[in-house]
Design a protein around this nucleic acid. Sequence first.
DNA 1: GTAATCCTTGACGCCGACGTCAAGGCAAGG
DNA 2: CCTTGCCTTGACGTCGGCGTCAAGGATTAC
Lengths: 131, 131
Amino acid sequence: MRIGELAERAGTSTRTLRYYESRGLLPARRTGNGYRTYDEDDLRLLRQIRMLQDFGFELEETRPFVDCLRAGHPAGDSCPASLAVYRRKLAELDGLIGQLADVREQVARQLAAAEDAAGEAASPRCEMTGP
Amino acid sequence: MRIGELAERAGTSTRTLRYYESRGLLPARRTGNGYRTYDEDDLRLLRQIRMLQDFGFELEETRPFVDCLRAGHPAGDSCPASLAVYRRKLAELDGLIGQLADVREQVARQLAAAEDAAGEAASPRCEMTGP
DNA sequence: GTAATCCTTGACGCCGACGTCAAGGCAAGG
DNA sequence: CCTTGCCTTGACGTCGGCGTCAAGGATTAC
């Protein structure tokens, strides 16, 4: 199949495919007229890449998976290098989530304090206002 | 004080201060020779900006806080517009953290499945191996 | 023959918050 | 006078993953 069909079947753009090729990730054969040609295996590679991209993996991080599939393994994550990437990514995600949770807490505290200050200003010294 | 001193006291760079000025966020007075001049109030504005930046706020999101301080309020978050930014940011953070947690789970599942598959291949059909 | 729809390469644009270099001005100390 | 160390503006570079033209060739449909 040609680049347009592959792009459509993978839910992406031809520009993306040419970009992947320029990065050496998804090279293409060529027909006599210079058109790129792909087969079903390429579609599998591409789907593997897209799945990881959707997870937020960088392109370079998808390379071990692609290499693994190209080496004939049944799945992109059947190789130790791919598992290593999974593990690094998990650690990275945990770190990031933790950081964001910290920031979230700090922002929440700032908001609460600012709202309190506003309430104070609106009705100051509410204590000792009873009979 | 001049730009170098302000940058140092706020723990940032002169390039950053010129950038903020170009964005209209932190304009500077000038001395006769064209040098930028800042005072303690500018330092307060700058510290407000840097704090929010450290939280991951975009520059534009810090503008309401700066305007609030410049309007004479005691704190950058003493104004409704600032509180609105806080709230938007909280929602944004919650969404982002949720997304990342989802991805983390999916990656963890992929990893577990791949590890299982590797174990299967190493010692297939472990069931029914007893006496 | 010609219009429509593919395809090709090349190259600039984008986004955010600056880093970094270039060329030159101003002030102070020795 | 000369060096040192501030300061000025201007402009290009960074990072990732593409989007979006531009100019032209190939194939198919009518």
